[in-house]
Amino acid sequence: MSAPAAAATTGAPLPTPTYGAGGSFAISCSSRIAAAPRDCLDVVVASSECTFLPPDQDNAAWNRFCRKCTIDSQPDDTPSDPTHLRLGTHFTFDVHLNPSEPDGAAAGQAIALQVSVLEPIDEPAGSEDGSPPRKGWRIAWKQRASLLMPAWLLRSERVQEFVEVEGGKETDYRCWETFYGLLAPVVRMAAAAQVERGFEAWSEGLKGRVEKGGRGE
């Protein structure tokens, strides 16, 4: 297996596909996964993979941060399998800000989201800075606004990139979420450390699921 995932950090805002530059702050993490980018993406978009099961059951879930993913609605062109995240999917995560909670813990915080980007990465080498070409996949989702939480008050978008390395046999995984709006500084003070731990649990769980073949071993 590849090296352990790096610790998540909170820092300056990073651009996101929907909201661009700006914002209040970003939480980010990264890791090297010993699998192809598409294998990593396939786990992330499978909503049933997130449903948390005891570890002695087959297909025990990898995700201690978001322990359940409920599909609320799919775009009109959804294929016969409605259980996977697609561009435009509305879904709700059951978020546990303490990933160390026991397996039978009560439901966490319901966060309503929408897939805002799902696309291949195919970027040529940079002629000016000498950067190498990048190939892989990118998925992003943003928080759905509501009457109680309008976008001007708080909005965020999370981006995950899976870029192939070692000839496509391994993946450089990079994830960041940028927070915008008047309440973003409050979120940073109140919950940034918890979200960091959640991102670390997500990254470590994803790495373990993909590298061990998806059996929760």
Rank of each mutant, 00 (worst) to 15 (best):
E177Y: 05
G213S: 14
S73C: 01
R174F: 09
S2T: 14
A193M: 11
S30D: 11
E49S: 15
P13S: 06
A3G: 09
D103K: 07
P99F: 07
E101L: 15
E49P: 04
D172A: 14
G205N: 04
T92Q: 05
L154Y: 06
L97V: 03
Y180N: 07
L97T: 05
E200F: 09
L97A: 06
P133W: 15
G20M: 10
G136Y: 01
D72W: 02
T51Q: 06
S47F: 05
P55T: 09
P185C: 14
W137E: 10
S156E: 07
Y19T: 03
H90L: 14
C175N: 13
D72G: 02
L53F: 05
L182G: 12
D39V: 08
D56H: 15
G205L: 04
G167Y: 09
K212S: 13
K212D: 12
A5C: 15
A190Q: 08
P54T: 13
Q57P: 00
G216R: 14
E119N: 11
T171C: 10
Q160Y: 12
W137F: 14
H90R: 08
A35H: 10
S47Q: 04
C175T: 04
R144L: 13
E204D: 14
N98D: 13
G130H: 02
G168W: 10
E170N: 09
G108C: 03
I71G: 00
S146C: 03
D72V: 03
Y173T: 01
K68T: 09
R38P: 03
A110F: 00
R215G: 13
S127V: 14
E49T: 07
D94F: 14
E101M: 12
S24D: 11
S24C: 08
A151V: 07
C50V: 09
W137A: 04
G22W: 13
G20V: 02
S203L: 06
D72H: 06
